[in-house]
Design a protein around this nucleic acid. Structure first.
Length: 492
RNA sequence: CGGGAUGUAGCGCAGCCCGGUAGCGCACACGGCUGGGGGCCGUGGGGUCGCAGGUUCAAAUCCUGUCAUCCCGACCA
């Protein structure tokens, strides 16, 4: 069935790359480490954006936009943050080109056009935003500030992969300022919950909520909340993070306010973000060897109608039926495409929509016209059935919900079957190398142990999950006392 | 930046060892037969073989240099 597509079993990375390209989601750009998101891929991203944006606004956030460039002096103000990102920054040093006297027809950087202060292309916007907030905040009456921005950021990664790690990527970053510590923590937790809800309800990706260990924390954060998902190859993917930043940025940028008692205090901050990496998570969670599988809630095309005909007259007759159906789907809010191209044959259309993950396909041919039926094919199960034309729209509507649920449940089963509790380090290594997935193990809470395990196995602590049962134990590596289990995995 | 590999048509590759002026599959264009799962047959278009130098009557092929890309590490949403 799958033609020209590497299978998951053969080579998971290759399968992923080919799938992203062949499903028309994105491709590598000629620009180093950068990606071109193609219209079909972007349409999915837009659906994600729309839903997230709605959720942000429902919780009182507003959108704004801040500059791409961050002057170096601002960038370095919060030391930990600067240090964390320093190794992967693109830097603007000049502002003008000129004709190259040594190479006619070529340009060179004008050496006289050197900037007095270099500009960092934002790898994240805390610095530029907090330097701006300083001017906005004087009193507790100015708080909270609840702002999100949709933007691109640049991180000069050594090795890149479509959607999962590219030098430039699209994301949203929320940056909030609060009067109290408690309020800021509540905000960070709320946003992590929103991410989890979005991942599970819209992307049909089950996630584990928790906090990062100190060494995995965002540079400059006091606490990093995260949602972790499990891909089909048994590796974990960080799907979203939300940070409680304490007063670190307020202190670095001197953002003080007068509180209700008339005293000066630093404001409390959060930041949170998800990126186009979610597209990678979507692909890797649901897709199969025939291509992409999209949950109905995110599919740009939820239903495709493919006519099967020999003659023009047959096509015309099918088209009348198809157009009526489209109208009904539209009324139900189901997006539908009728592919009446005569330049492609039905079989190749079937294959194409399968590759592109369209959740449901309706085929209508002369036999169907005669019997008042259509053929329905589900992308997720690859099952086909002939159904009556009567009540078709209701049937399809029900299937949209079924498919969405069943994708989630399938991913949930897989995920739950790949969380393994281990008691010894031998078991740990064994599970990691054979079964893969998350390993639930006791940890002594030290960075040293965490690092040693990472060096030995490449597995990192993905998160300290919130839902962990209260259980004392001994560390799987050091044998020292542990307060609870954490989740280890190899990660993207 | 350390280890490995590769640059030949839009994409994927063969040819290189053993030098004789470039080929296959997919894609593309045209014609016909077709049409309920990626059709078949025929015809056709498209490449200064990454770049520069050298050896030679002759270089995709041999030699030297160089550039680029990919994979494995380190870094990371």
């Amino acid at each position: 069935m799958s033609k020209n597509l590497t299978t998951r079993r053969e080579d998971y990375s290759k399968w992923y790359n080919e799938l992203v390209v062949k499903a028309d989601l994105a491709e590598n750009s000629a620009v180093r480490g950068c990606m071109v998101i193609k219209p079909y891929g972007y349409a999915i991203w837009e659906k994600m954006q729309a839903e997230l944006d709605r959720m942000f606004k429902e919780t009182g956030h507003q959108n704004a936009y801040f500059p791409l460039f961050v002057p170096k002096s601002l960038f370095e103000a919060e030391e930990k943050n600067a240090e964390g990102f320093a190794k992967e920054c693109a830097i603007v040093t000049h502002y003008r080109l000129q004709n190259d006297p040594d190479n006619p027809g070529k340009l060179r950087v004008d050496p006289d056009a050197k900037l007095e202060e270099e500009l960092i292309v934002r790898p994240t916007s805390e610095a530029i935003i907090w330097s701006t907030y300083k001017g906005w905040i004087q009193s507790y009456r100015d708080l909270p500030i609840l702002i999100n921005q949709w933007a691109n950021v640049v991180r000069w990664e050594m090795r890149t992969r479509l959607f999962l790690r590219t030098a430039e990527f699209l994301w949203q970053e929320g940056h909030t300022a609060h009067e109290t510590k408690g309020e800021a923590i509540a905000e960070a937790e709320q946003m992590n919950n929103i991410y989890a809800e979005f991942a599970e309800k819209f992307m049909a990706i089950p996630v584990i909520k928790g906090v990062k260990t100190q060494s995995e924390r965002f540079a400059g954060a006091e606490e990093t909340y995260c949602i972790e998902a499990l891909m089909q190859d048994g590796k974990a993917l960080q799907a979203g993070t939300s940070h409680f930043l304490g007063q670190n940025f307020a202190k670095a940028f001197d953002v003080k306010f007068t509180n209700k008692d008339g005293k000066l205090d630093y404001v409390w901050a959060t930041s949170w973000g998800v990126s186009t990496r979610l597209m990678g998570a979507l692909v890797m969670t649901h897709s199969d060897d025939n291509g992409l599988v999209l949950p109905p809630n995110l599919a740009p095309i939820q239903v495709v109608i493919v006519p099967i005909h020999k003659t023009d007259a047959q096509l015309e007759e099918i088209s009348i039926l198809a157009k009526n159906l489209m109208q009904e789907f539209k009324t139900m809010g189901i997006s539908c495409k009728y592919d009446n191209r005569t330049t492609h044959r039905p079989g190749s259309k079937f294959a194409q929509y399968e590759l592109q993950g369209v959740p449901l396909r309706i085929a209508i041919g002369p036999k169907d016209l005669e019997n008042k039926t259509v053929e329905l094919a589900r992308r997720d199960t690859l099952s086909k059935e002939i159904v009556e034309l009567d009540n078709l729209v209701a049937t399809v509507n029900g299937l949209m919900i079924d498919i969405q649920d069943s994708l989630f449940n399938k991913a949930l089963d897989f995920r739950n079957n790949h969380i393994t509790e281990v008691e010894t380090f031998d078991e740990f290594k064994n599970v990691l190398n054979t079964k893969t997935g998350f390993i639930s193990a006791h940890w002594d809470g030290t960075a040293e142990t965490e690092q040693k395990i990472k060096d030995l196995t490449k597995a990192t602590i993905r998160c300290i999950p919130f839902n962990a049962k209260n259980e004392k134990g001994i560390c799987v590596f050091s044998g020292n006392p542990s307060d609870g289990r954490v989740l280890f995995a190899k990660a993207y």
